[in-house]
């Protein structure tokens, strides 16, 4: 893939549009425990990010690296359930509300990677524009860039690890 901005190269990428049936078990094995109550969308983000770092041969994401995640579906299941509960005159279950927030996925990702740093959820319609924005201002430790979609029952995720040339 051509770099969207000069000075960067793609070190690794995974495109998981067809997930293995046991991907959640594989994630649990990778993390040493099953993620609790973060929702399937966030679990998918963790799975894709870990697979991408594994492919890049990185045991850990450097602290100064940047993480950007985007999605058009978001945590669709949790969001629809939570807003549906409000429309029905109920309080949303706290974990549905939390799971609906992209920021909670970033927190779970940080915990899974044992990492804290410049992570943000930034979405839009133009994948290349999102990547250019993510790379602008990224540190020499580079960028972990992911897309996570929960489109009805169809789950897919794609991640890229960008480093300086």
């Amino acid at each position: 893939m051509n770099a969207p901005m000069p000075g960067w190269r793609l070190a690794a990428q995974v495109d998981l549009s067809a997930l293995p049936a046991d991907w959640r078990d594989a994630l649990a094995r990778r993390l040493g425990q099953r993620p609790r109550r973060i929702g399937v969308w966030a679990e998918l983000a963790l799975y894709g990010a870990c697979r991408c770092l594994d492919k890049a041969g990185e045991a850990a994401l450097p602290p100064a690296a940047r993480v950007r995640v985007w999605s058009l579906s978001g945590a669709q299941g949790a969001m629809r359930t939570g807003i549906g509960q409000v429309r029905a005159g109920l309080l949303p279950m706290p974990f549905h509300f939390m799971q609906s927030q992209p920021a909670m996925m970033l927190a779970a990702l940080g915990q899974a990677l044992d990492w804290r740093g410049d992570a943000a959820f930034v979405t839009g319609r133009d994948a290349q524009a999102l990547l250019r924005l993510a790379l602008a201002g990224a540190a020499p430790e580079g960028l972990l860039f992911g897309r996570v979609e929960e489109d009805g029952g169809r789950l897919r995720t794609a991640w890229q690890r960008w480093v300086p040339e």
Partner: peptide
């Protein structure tokens, strides 16, 4: 022009400024 939506809970628009 290009349109981006930043959603990081309470830090969203400060992160939009940083972006």
């Amino acid at each position: 022009g290009p349109v981006f939506t930043v959603s990081t809970a309470c830090t969203s628009s400060l992160n939009a400024v940083l972006a």
